[in-house]
């Protein structure tokens, strides 16, 4: 199945990011296609390279970047990002900033849109 994933919450503060990551890894393992990952609301904080979590903790931004390196389209909403001070220069590799049109295309093209957040 072709699945798109949207994440509304910031990292560490909320389980949404971890749940979405685990969901995606499991879906890929089952042979599903991830049409794209879209970060909205505080979700835009998930992919800043400025984060530096303790070394014995998971590095959430790097984890997303590694998924992006596999060719999954990871998009940060520009409107939500600008509001929160997230710009191109602070993003981890393999992630891009774009508009809500990208979310629209994911909602249209994916067979399921799965949303993580409150």
């Amino acid at each position: 199945m072709k699945i798109a994933v949207t994440i509304y919450e910031g990292p560490y503060n909320h389980e949404a990011s971890d749940s979405a990551y685990n969901f995606i890894v499991a879906a890929l393992a089952k042979g599903h296609e991830i049409r794209g990952i879209f970060f909205y609301h505080d979700g835009v904080y998930n992919v800043t390279k400025l984060m530096e979590p303790p070394q014995d903790d998971r590095h959430i931004a790097n984890r997303w970047s590694e998924l992006g390196a596999k060719g999954i389209d990871i998009v940060v909403c520009i409107a939500a990002a600008k509001r929160r001070g997230i710009v191109d220069s602070v993003l981890v590799p393999n992630v891009r900033i774009s508009g809500l049109g990208q979310l629209t295309m994911m909602a249209i093209e994916a067979e399921r849109m799965v949303i993580f957040g409150d």
Binding site: Y8, Y40, H41, A79, A80, G99, L100, G101, L103, T104, M105, A107, I108, D118
Partner: peptide, 24 residues
């Protein structure tokens, strides 16, 4: 969700306005 107290409903409205411009 209620309209105030969190930004979900406001930013959600922005999504609707953009998506309405597409063939959906």
């Amino acid at each position: 969700k209620g309209p105030h107290g969190t930004i979900y409903v406001y930013e959600g409205l922005e999504v609707k306005l953009i998506m309405a411009a597409y063939d959906a």
